[in-house]
Design a protein around this nucleic acid. Structure first.
Lengths: 242, 242
DNA sequence: CGCACTCTTGATGGTCATCAAGACGGGTGG
DNA sequence: CCACCCGTCTTGATGACCATCAAGAGTGCG
């Protein structure tokens, strides 16, 4: 059930059998949500964190005119709102992009397991810091990349993050969002997303069709994006206490 | 010495006398840096975190063409790189915007005090999550706000964050950066920053002259920015264990 | 079969970038 | 002390990128 989550954690840190058992024991409930449902609204009090088991979710904020900006995409194995453990209420909304299955982890349980296992406290703190690193890369994208390299960068990021949990290979991955949602990630309009997708396709870099991203030239795509996966902190990280 | 830092922490959480003493004891060294020095380079191994005592610093990333994007401004009392405690190496650079005085806190010391005081672990985890919340607001700005409201939003944020440590009132605060650095925060060129500043000045909202921001109409400025300080999590937060 | 939504493409325009040049101001050295 | 120099600020002219408006095609669903 939480295999994606464990795969994600174990890419970077050692998780003992006892720690794994503690994480499994922290889940209070499994829930299913339909697509396009805002499951957490900015400002509301929250008593649990949401672990994404299947599907895609995102964090978004919006302005009064209704312009929506997505700040992060969540893939299976991610906590969508681990940061609510310390923040209690969020400054953004959390939305399902597809039908989703999630596991709820009450903050009280979270507290128990991080007190019992300091390594888990470290690993989960790391995890929220990784979210922040992804935010910074998006700040760079939105501030300094043009539409093409911005979209390329998004596809590169997703390819890596989905590959970690076995949901992407080098050539393709499912990405069941529409062009409107893509635009909301990239700070563009859906019209311009459409044209940018065409350019990427015509340059034989990547195609986005039928809810699937097909990468025709990964190196070329990464070059266009100036993609450096360092911000995703892949591979073994320094352990707690080392 | 770390009074700004304590003020910042105590705005949101209770810090006991013993905890305060532990924080004070964790500082290993005080250093001074000149303006415009990159004190931490992306990718290098780090064994300590840097607490900003005086001056302004920022986090930035850049592209190969040299285009620089600032992701966050640090004000006195902030840790510039508390997240390096779990990340060890950073995905971005840290730069002094002015001459700065900092206190170094070795990660080993940090570990000692958060193990001794779980409340401090919670408070510092919160602190890195607050950085992420600021990143998200910048994502919204860069993705969906135009130049005027983007700049207004930045000034609103800084006014609040500086006021927390007593370095701003409702009317003005020192902000010793140039228009180039402002542009690097806002994803604009310095030329357009110059024109946008003129508009804000002509509308009697805010003026930026002689390294100082003078707010003529705070309500109006906040309206232009659609500024909602909720993302800064002002005021008392839920305590650890409640 | 019809409706609603997304996708696609064209036409036009606005915001912001780029290029350029002069003004201003602070620091330095003769 | 003044001249010079360099970086920043300011403004103008032009253009690129992306938004907006609009309309037809495609697709899935009731």
């Amino acid at each position: 059930m939480i295999e994606y989550h464990l795969a994600r954690l174990r890419l970077r840190h050692d998780i003992s059998a006892a720690e794994e058992a503690a994480i499994r024991g922290a889940v209070s409930e499994v829930r299913d949500y339909p697509a396009d449902r805002t499951i957490i609204h900015a400002g509301e009090q929250i008593g649990h964190s949401t672990l994404l088991l299947e599907g895609l979710m995102c964090r978004y904020k919006d302005l009064r005119g209704g312009e929506r900006q997505i700040a992060e995409i969540h893939v299976p194995g991610d906590f969508a709102d681990l940061h609510s453990y310390t923040l209690k209420r969020l400054d953004h909304n959390i939305l399902t992009l597809t039908a989703c299955r999630v596991a709820l982890v009450p903050h009280a349980k979270l507290r128990e397991i991080i007190e019992a296992f300091p390594n888990l406290a470290f690993v989960y703190w790391f995890s929220t810091n990784l979210d922040a690193a992804i935010h910074r890369e998006w700040v760079l994208s939105l501030g300094r990349r043009n539409a093409m390299s911005r979209m390329a960068a998004l596809f590169c990021e997703l390819q890596v993050r989905l590959a970690i949990v076995g949901l992407a290979d080098e050539n393709s991955f499912e990405f069941p969002v529409d062009q409107i949602e893509l635009a909301e990630c990239l700070g563009l309009t859906s019209v311009h997303v459409n044209r940018t997708l065409r350019q990427l396709r015509e340059q034989n870099l990547v195609a986005f069709r039928d809810k699937r991203v097909t990468v025709h030239n990964l190196d070329g795509l990464r070059r266009v994006a100036e993609f450096d996966p360092a911000y995703l902190y892949l591979g073994r990280q320094s352990a707690y206490g080392s």
